[in-house]
Simulated scan of single mutants.
Amino acid sequence: MTTITKINLGQNGPLVSKLGLGCMRMSPVWGGRAGDESESIATIHSALDAGINFLNTGDFYGAGHNELLVGKAIRGRRDNAFISVKFGAIFYNRQWLGLDLRPIAIKNFINYSLVRLGIDTIDLYQPCRLDDSVPVEDVIGTVGELIKEGKVRYLGVSEITADQLRKAHSVHPVTALEIGYSLADRQIEADLLPAAKELGIGVVAFANTAEGLLTGDIEPPLPADDYRLHFSRFQGENLVRNLEKVEWLKQMAKEKGCTPTQLAIAWVNAQGSHIMPLVSMSRRSRLPENIAAMDIAFSPEEMIALDTHFAPGATLGSTYLQR
């Protein structure tokens, strides 16, 4: 199995694996069921054994279920794991209600997270989004206070704009930006990615396969209960046209002796040494394929072809990433 290399998360930041493990799919979030707990824990253990130390969770994943699960998995292995936690999202009966980013709420959230995870310090703590409900200075300043208290090691931010990133970084140094990024979702290349690079902020890139679009496994129409039908990218003619582009990706994958999923991850990995693909999985069987993707290299001609075929805006329709 490939040995996962380590990178500094951000300029002079902590040493983490170049590939991260997203744990969200191990818990019920968007109406799905929780995965098999023993298999989920075994997946985390296998990832740690392979050198993947970056574990990403959120206090609202399964109403705390995910943190409890991660806590069980890292028991006795805390030193091998770098724990990233998102906060701020409020769900009720699995329905999104909004954000609560008040300082008093953040201080409440972290105490519950520490107990569920069974740890004393969260390595990377980040608001899941920012809005205008609470001043950025108050949100980021509160996390800065938690860092001074020793409850948090590093500040992260997630799904924000370039202006918000600059403002947050002016309040307290931001170590990492978590954001959706794939061949099908490249809008952040215009200003957010350059801003992160300029400021020396690491990028944790999730949704590398664009909610499964780039896996080559989707056949239209999607089942009526598929959550992706909420997004125009996966509806009607948009989906048909988008899957035609994926056929081209499948052909390149065949020629390179890999899967479309591996190509999608490899493309994100190739975008820079400061960018970490964050791959969600809940089964050990997915690990070898995803890890092997980190060894895939592209010729200059292949990269040009990918950038051209999946140019920004080429994928029809929107997802929640376009806000």
Rank of each mutant, 00 (worst) to 15 (best):
L9P: 03
L99C: 09
R78L: 02
V246N: 14
F231K: 06
V174L: 07
G71P: 02
G200A: 05
G51C: 08
N238K: 14
A292E: 15
L249M: 12
Y125Q: 05
T57Q: 04
K250P: 02
P300Y: 02
L48M: 05
Q164L: 06
V203K: 08
T315R: 10
S170C: 01
W96K: 11
S84A: 14
V279P: 04
R233Q: 08
R323T: 07
L316P: 03
A81H: 00
G272W: 09
T57C: 13
L9R: 09
K148Y: 01
L192A: 08
E189H: 13
L278W: 05
F54M: 13
P223C: 02
P14E: 09
A190S: 09
L9S: 02
G118D: 06
G236Y: 11
P173H: 10
H309G: 01
G200I: 05
G141V: 03
T5C: 08
V29Q: 13
F91C: 11
S170Q: 14
V157R: 05
G150L: 10
F206G: 12
Q251R: 14
Q126I: 07
Y227N: 13
V29N: 14
G98I: 12
S113A: 10
L19N: 01
G20M: 05
H169F: 03
K18M: 04
Q322D: 11
A184E: 06
N290F: 07
D131Y: 11
A176F: 01
L193G: 08
E39M: 01
K197W: 01
G62A: 07
T121K: 14
V134A: 11
G62F: 06
R116L: 06
D138T: 07
G64T: 01
S232Q: 07
Q95G: 10
A266H: 10
G216H: 08
P194K: 09
L243G: 12
A196P: 00
M24F: 02
D123L: 13
R75T: 07
G71K: 09
D100F: 10
V246A: 15
E301P: 00
Q95K: 15
K18H: 00
V16I: 13
Y181S: 10
I74H: 06
S232E: 07
G257Q: 10
